[in-house]
């Protein structure tokens, strides 16, 4: 097991709504409780890509429209290609909410031009029009991929207008039990590709789903000691 890890937090000042910070806090604490030193490395507009390349795990969260635009320009041009290379070389990564849409191939709003994505995942998102309802609320889902976690129930809160569909080489993360997930139609939630996960569970995905946190950390660090997750499990079960 490695004794330290650098965790890149992409655009913490621009892409951080809905308590996204919870994911970073959980990764940091679950490392330190096992004697692993975790450094949170903020990667924003001015940060050189070499800093990003020095990291062993990546997190990127949600954003408001205006901030997403600012981050978007930088991500498409500079950070995105680097993140793609890192994901391809099996660096673990987590993309939630707006970031999940953003690492796909494109986002098609109901009016205006299609917004290109970073193309890290083969998935596309379309907004079905302003008459379509926004998908908002608690979600429970059962993990299907990766197989080691299959059957684990994950919970979260979704709040999205866009409907996401996965390309042929992409595997869904979980099967929806209640709520909507990727698009409200095919019953899937999230995506997994190599060691990278995308999900519509916005904000603090990891606190109530420590199995995903540990899976990401193990991909970066090697096998980890077990922690007592009784409280995490109770919080998970309290989401209905």
């Amino acid at each position: 097991m490695k004794k330290s890890i650098r965790i890149a937090w992409l655009y913490p000042d621009l892409m951080s709504t809905y308590g996204d910070r919870g994911n970073v806090i959980v990764l940091e604490r679950r490392s330190s409780w096992r004697g692993v030193r975790a450094d949170i490395v903020p990667v924003t507009l001015e940060t050189p890509v070499s800093v990003l390349e020095s990291c062993g795990l990546i997190f990127m969260g949600g954003a408001q429209d205006r901030q997403q635009k600012l981050a978007g320009e930088d991500f498409l041009k500079r950070k995105g290609p680097v993140v793609k290379k890192m994901v391809e070389s099996n660096i673990p990564a987590l993309f939630v909410c707006a970031a999940y849409q953003f690492v796909g191939r494109y986002y098609k709003p109901y009016q205006g031009d299609t917004i290109p994505g970073a193309g890290i995942f083969d998935l596309t998102t379309e907004h079905p029009g302003d008459q379509a309802k926004r998908l908002i609320g608690n979600v429970r889902a059962e993990i299907v991929n990766p197989h080691v976690l299959a059957g684990t129930v994950i919970v979260g809160f979704e709040n999205h207008g866009g409907r996401t569909h996965l390309g042929p080489k992409m595997k869904p993360l979980a099967k929806v039990i209640s709520g909507n997930g990727n698009n409200g139609d095919d019953g899937w939630e999230g995506v997994i590709y190599k060691n990278a996960i995308g999900s519509y569970f916005h904000g603090p995905l990891l606190p109530k789903n420590p199995a995903i946190a540990d899976w990401l950390l193990e991909k970066a660090l090697g096998t980890l000691a077990l922690l007592n997750d009784t409280l995490e499990q109770k919080a998970n079960e309290s989401v209905r």
């Binding site: 919870g22 806090i25 604490r29 606190p207 109530k208 409280l231 995490e232 919080a235 309290s238």
Partner: peptide, 13 residues
């Protein structure tokens, strides 16, 4: 209603 969410937040703080 969400006491365990709050407890979890404090645990990680």
């Amino acid at each position: 209603d969400r006491a365990y969410d709050m407890a979890l937040r404090l645990k990680y703080a």
